[in-house]
């Protein structure tokens, strides 16, 4: 089956098992997943806990190795199969095409918040000034107090750290975004500002795949749903 010509993401028969050598155990997490996502679509992954929603997101990002099938994303003009791609290519795709917004921030002890958010932009060649300007704009939208921007986020509250991380995830306008529970543990006002950013991105044509536990959030941002079932 050929992918649609305008597909941004195209999964065909994706399977993933984890083998635990020390216990002589193999667990199948995904089997035969097919999915196509076009520009401006936001697909919510659904299914019970353990159905492989997170595994699928990570496999898409190249964080997990796909065991079967193809995981293709549109990078530049062409579809690139993340499964089995050279690490350099995956890194390149991640820098400009494929964004990942998760709940957890890996904090670098001494990097100021503003630079953490600006860093992905600088990595793709944006000038330091322009990158910081964009970072400030995002932090403002996400209600991170300007007094905090020059501080490393190590001492911030969980919610603040999460918003810094979301700002970082939105810094580069990637055409494909993976959203891993972006609003979890945020209060209503902050969740609203994150949703606004997601809607903004979708209006721009960004293709998105996300896990949203909050049904209201899901209803607001998702254009359709893919339900996964336990494969084992």
């Amino acid at each position: 089956m050929e992918p649609l010509t305008d597909a941004m993401v195209c999964l065909r028969g994706v399977g993933k098992s984890f083998t635990f050598h020390s216990r002589g155990l193999s667990v199948e997490a995904l089997r035969g997943v097919d999915l196509e996502v076009r520009r401006g679509e936001c697909v919510a992954l659904d299914g019970p806990s353990g159905a492989g929603k997170s595994t699928l997101m990570r496999t898409l990002y190249g964080n997990y190795l796909a065991g079967a099938g193809t995981v293709r994303v549109r990078h530049g003009g062409e579809l690139i199969n993340i499964a089995g791609a050279d690490p350099h290519i995956i890194l390149e795709v991640r820098r400009t095409t494929l964004g990942y917004i998760s709940q957890f921030l890996r904090v670098l002890p001494r990097v100021p918040t503003l630079d953490i958010v600006a860093e992905p932009l600088i990595a793709i060649g944006t000038s330091r000034e322009a990158a910081r300007e964009r970072a400030a704009e995002l932090l403002e939208k996400l209600n991170v107090a300007p007094a905090l921007w020059s501080l490393p986020p190590a001492t911030f509250s969980g919610g603040e750290q999460q918003r810094v991380n979301i700002a970082r995830g939105f810094a580069v306008p990637c055409p494909i975004l993976l959203l891993d529970e972006p609003t979890a543990s945020l209060d209503a006002a902050n969740a609203d500002s994150v949703i606004a950013l997601i809607e903004e991105a979708r209006a721009r044509g960004t293709a998105m795949i996300g896990i949203f536990h909050d049904a209201q959030v899901k209803a607001r941002v998702a254009t359709r749903q893919l339900t996964l079932t336990r494969s084992s």
């Binding site: 190249g62 964080n63 997990y64 190795l65 890194l91």
Partner: peptide
């Protein structure tokens, strides 16, 4: 990839 090797190690020794 560094994060892949650490999060989804394949070889028994790496695990």
């Amino acid at each position: 990839l560094a994060d892949q090797v650490l999060d989804d190690p394949q070889a028994p020794y790496t695990q």
